[in-house]
Design a protein around this nucleic acid. Structure first.
Length: 156
DNA sequence: GCCAACGTTGGC
DNA sequence: GCCAACGTTGGC
């Protein structure tokens, strides 16, 4: 079982959008970065858990937990010329981009902001906190995962 | 809205 | 294969 962190802009697709989807499930489309794709395609397994992270907003941070309910399959938004994520280099016969399906698991009892994560010396090695990180899909160490969940109920 | 830090593109 | 130019991400 692996742990992940998925970034999304709440104005575009936040955790509230996911909750409103049928079966609270949606495909995680639009990933157009090779490293992020490789994580999704090669390492994400059904049943894995991921933090839902809100980026590019007033209070960036982790807001919830989702579960991977379908492993990687071709991202069809890359095939549609009308779509924002269209990529002419990706064809159905030889797809370049992939997506997984995620299902809402729960919201954290309180959001854990990026600011708070940065204050945790134990989390220093987290990919998310490393300089210039722009990955929208990244693995999270089990120890970091556990530490963050402890913050959820810890008093501040 | 600014801008640093990346990733990608394309000329050479 | 190098690298400048450009586009994007995302915190602030």
């Amino acid at each position: 079982m692996n742990y992940w962190l998925l970034k999304s802009e709440p104005d575009v697709f936040g955790i509230d959008h996911l909750i409103k989807m049928p079966r609270k499930t949606e495909h995680w489309d639009g990933v157009r970065n090779y490293q992020a794709r490789n994580f999704m395609r090669d390492s994400m397994k059904k049943g894995d858990l991921a933090f839902f992270y809100h980026s590019n907003c007033k209070e960036p941070g982790i807001v919830g937990v989702v579960r991977i309910v379908r492993e990687a399959y071709p991202d069809h938004t890359a095939f549609d010329p009308k779509c924002k994520y269209y990529d002419p280099n990706s064809e159905p016969a030889k797809p370049r981009w992939f997506m997984v399906d995620v299902k809402y698991d729960r919201r954290l009892k309180r959001p854990i902001s990026l600011k708070e994560l940065k204050q945790q010396t134990t989390l220093k090695s987290m990919k998310l906190l490393q300089r210039g990180n722009r990955l929208s899909v990244m693995p999270v160490e089990k120890s970091d995962w556990d530490h963050i969940l402890k913050l959820e109920t810890a008093c501040c």
